[in-house]
């Protein structure tokens, strides 16, 4: 199965502006940043969470803790992803109990990743609340899950794939939409 890149949906500037807006929405919705913790979902959610923390530091002068979460152990679809699923690191700088945890991921699609992340966070403690921030919401939810903060809404068909590329992992920033082509 091949993937053909069709179009660029967001360039580096668009991503930057979206992150700035999301950061300000976080401050507005939480009436400040007290007890806020950003948790990036492995892999690309983590650099996005780090960037949000950087923006918040510059505009509010607050150091928001950033954690990294790998949800491989909580997935409900292990075998569908690959024959030997790799487990990445999970690092939480603070205890999540009584914190406002904001999960950060690149794309919100079926909602199963967020569901797994909810289980993981709750296994670590009892947060005050859990919110979700994503760069792209592409629709097609299979579970009753929604995002609180969205960089861009992109309606897609199930034949399409959204790739969020980040400089920290892919070498440059952009969001592209690709289509699966059957052989």
């Amino acid at each position: 199965m091949e993937l053909i890149e069709k179009a660029q949906i967001m360039d580096k500037e668009a991503m930057r502006r979206a992150l700035i807006r999301v950061a300000h929405e976080i401050v507005e919705k939480n009436k400040g940043l007290e007890d806020v913790v950003l948790v990036g979902i492995h892999r690309r959610g983590y650099p996005l969470a780090q960037r949000l923390a950087q923006i918040l530091k510059e505009s509010e002068n607050v150091d928001v803790p950033v954690g990294e979460l790998d949800i491989t152990l909580y997935r409900d679809d292990l075998t569908l992803r690959s024959t030997q699923p790799q487990v990445g690191p999970t690092r939480m700088p603070v205890d999540v109990a009584n914190k406002r945890v904001i999960l950060v991921d690149d794309v919100l699609y079926t909602g199963r990743t967020i569901r797994a992340a909810l289980d993981a966070i709750i296994d670590m403690g009892r947060p005050t609340n859990i919110q979700v921030a994503v760069m792209v919401d592409r629709g097609h939810r299979e579970l009753p899950i929604r995002a609180d903060y969205v960089g861009k809404n992109v309606p897609t068909s199930s034949k399409e794939v959204i790739h969020v590329k980040v400089a920290e992992i892919d070498g440059h920033d952009e969001v592209v939409i690709a289509e699966k082509k059957d052989e």
Binding site: L73, Y74, V87, P89, T90, D123, M124, G125
Partner: peptide
């Protein structure tokens, strides 16, 4: 990657 589970308050993943 799995070692941190040993230091969680709830030492369990499903």
């Amino acid at each position: 990657s799995l070692k941190e589970i040993l230091s969680r308050p709830i030492k369990k993943v499903p």
